[in-house]
């Protein structure tokens, strides 16, 4: 077992599945010779050749749209959007075709394809490189939006996504790309798409997050547990859409309190949906209002102000304490 960071884990998943299955190919801007701007596809060109590692022109819609064609013809394209900030050029393909081809043909056609994209803030990037817009994709019926939080679940979820007969949008929190390493087994493992992971069981409060926000959430939970002896259940959502209502509802029914940590702007975000799910499924168990700790409904600030805008450990710890004291 090797200690890998998330980029290396993603690279491992791609390499393993390309070795397993000749129909898998990767395509995107700079994914070949350059190995991807974050090096997620490093070494794949040398190993699998340019027929299966396509350096494409700058054409997000074309990458996803031609990916649709390839998937229809039996290939399994893994399309890379270089940054999520550029991915909106392919929204037409995503909404009109990727998410609905199965439904509009009553199941006759399906698209085994993956769209990967780095997203999120915290790396002092140029503008349009720091947004967290998972909800724009998650809102499309038929969309499956996956967000790993660490190297090991990134590898397992990406393998599952590539093997799935239906499309998966795979958003990679770039703040977590090289932030830490984990043991990632060489032996292949997958995680089910659509299933949240209970990182730690607890009885006093449910803390829900995903992606890069899992790190401050975990640290804040540890601090409060130490300070107050509280027992906190922690859920890593892993899949934004379709959301794992069962795990959320069962947890809140047990704890009666919930805090959601979200990097994205507050309104209409996944935390709003989580709150609604709790309202539907666990209202009578609530001891306190569900607290949303989120980004703000402002245009993502440039990185000079970025740190103060991202939910951090102090803010999360304070939110947990307030919810416990309510």
């Amino acid at each position: 077992m090797a200690k890998l960071n998330m980029v290396q884990a993603i690279n491992l998943a791609l390499a393993q599945e390309m070795a397993n299955d000749d129909s898998v190919l990767v395509m995107g801007q700079d994914v070949g010779v350059d190995g991807g701007v974050f090096r997620a596809t490093d070494g794949l060109l040398e190993r699998f050749g340019q027929k299966r590692v396509l350096d494409t022109p700058l054409a997000e819609s074309g990458i996803v749209g031609s990916g649709v064609g390839m998937a229809l013809a039996g290939l399994k394209p893994v399309c890379e959007m270089q940054f999520s900030g550029f991915s909106y050029m392919m929204m037409g393909q995503f909404e009109a075709h990727v998410t609905r081809l199965r439904a509009r043909t009553l199941g006759q056609l399906n698209l085994p394809m993956v769209i990967r994209m780095p997203y999120g803030g915290g790396v002092r990037a140029l503008e349009h490189h720091s947004e967290s817009r998972e909800v724009m994709y998650a809102h499309q019926p038929g969309a499956r939006v996956v967000i790993p939080s660490g190297p090991r679940n990134a590898r397992a979820l990406l393998l599952a996504a590539i093997r799935d007969p239906d499309p998966v949008l795979f958003m990679e929190p770039k703040h977590s790309y090289r932030a830490f390493r984990e043991e990632v087994p060489e032996q292949e493992e997958t995680l089910p798409i659509g299933k949240a992971h209970v990182v730690q069981e607890g009885t006093d409060l449910t803390l829900i997050s995903w992606g890069a926000m899992m790190r401050p959430a975990l640290k804040a939970a540890a601090r409060i547990e130490k300070q107050r002896g509280a027992s906190i259940e922690i859920i890593d959502l892993l899949t934004i859409a379709p959301m794992d209502h069962e795990t959320i509802a069962a947890s809140v029914a047990k704890t009666g309190r919930c805090v959601v940590v979200q990097e994205a702007p507050r309104s209409f975000g996944p935390s709003s949906e989580i709150t609604a799910v709790i309202n539907d499924r666990a209202f009578l168990y609530l001891e306190a209002p569900v607290k949303r700790l989120t980004g703000y409904d402002v245009v993502t600030p440039y990185f000079g102000r970025e740190k103060s805008y991202l939910p951090g450990v102090d803010k999360v710890a304070q939110g947990i304490a307030e919810t416990l004291d309510f």
Partner: peptide, 30 residues
Amino acid sequence: NVLPDKELRILPTSVVIGCQIEHAAGLAYA
């Protein structure tokens, strides 16, 4: 949109204009 046999390989109508040329490029690549 359901064909007697999907191997007829007739894609459903593309009401959203232009997308289908990208699909066709991918089919041709395949």
